[in-house]
Write a protein that binds this DNA or RNA. Structure first.
Lengths: 160, 160
DNA sequence: ACTTGGATGCAAATCAATTGCATTAGCTTC
DNA sequence: GAAGCTAATGCAATTGATTTGCATCCAAGT
């Protein structure tokens, strides 16, 4: 099978979890294995970069389900810790499938012109974050971090 | 005049720009000095922490203007670089007045229970960001970074 | 004072996301 | 394998933030 998403070939982690592993996770969480659910997981499994609800809905190959069902499922999948929600500040949430055992913590570099997404390995330094929490007396601290810029291709286009 | 916003007394930078400095900035940008505009700037000037359009609209003391006007003004003020837009991921934008000459770059620590906001001095290390941009060939790189956690007061409340 | 284009008010439209409700269909139990 | 319970779904309507069309108004320049 060829890469389902060539423009995101630069993504590092390209493990495709087997579908039955995913359904097992559902079972363990006392969730029913429904057709929409499986179709959605299949889409997420094949496109391992942040997808909007709408994109997921559009990518449901063959099988159709209501957009509201996609929204509902991504919310429950997030609660279950099977997907991670990202916010690129454009008003629509994006989701990525998580690999079991991996908390999926990572960030993105997004092109402000063509929306190309690169997965980033860097993260805000943990010791700074800990110090920050202590300094202000906060507990259970976390962060949202995304980078924005102009990708190489759009720089080319700009010059032409 | 007492602090207009006691629960944000921990905010460090509490310079209140004079209203006429702000109107000067408008003039320099060929913007008309209108009553709604001044009222909005006045609100931002008095409450130097992130405010939603709705909050700003509600805080317009005495003077009333349409909510759409608030939205339009914050967009133009953002274009002019007089305010900075923040996104805490709750679906509504927040704005802070910028001090002239300061690019206003900073981040926040937000309580996920009571929404208390603390301004943060830390930032993602510039050298890491530069390296990141170079590594992926991106230009004009920037980032969005916000921290979330449980504030001291809510920790108390939780225990009781 | 006169003119003009930006600014405003008001209502309607968008757009993402959620929700109420009747119906359907997994999954457990017998 | 049928019965029963409840989650899950489809569909339509709703919410909430934000934008926009349009007629009117007014700040600023001449």
């Amino acid at each position: 099978m060829k890469d389902p998403c060539p423009q995101h070939a630069h993504r590092h982690r390209l493990i495709q979890p087997a579908l039955n592993e995913l359904t097992d996770q559902l079972r363990r969480n006392a969730r029913k294995i429904t057709a929409p659910r499986q179709a959605i997981l299949n889409v997420l499994r094949r496109h391992q970069h942040p997808l909007t609800n709408r994109e997921i809905h559009a990518a449901l190959s063959g099988f159709e389900c209501d957009l509201a069902t996609v929204y509902r499922n991504l919310n429950t999948l997030e609660e279950m810790g099977m997907v991670r929600r990202f916010d690129f500040g454009d008003g629509t949430a994006r989701f990525e499938l998580l690999i079991e055992g991996d908390d999926g913590h990572h960030h993105h570099l997004v092109c402000t012109q063509c929306s190309t997404v690169v997965e980033i390995e860097d993260c805000f330094p943990a010791e700074l974050e800990t110090a920050l929490a202590r300094r202000h007396g906060f507990k259970h601290i976390s962060h949202k971090l995304e980078f924005f810029g102009i990708c190489p291709k759009c720089q080319e286009r700009g010059r032409s």
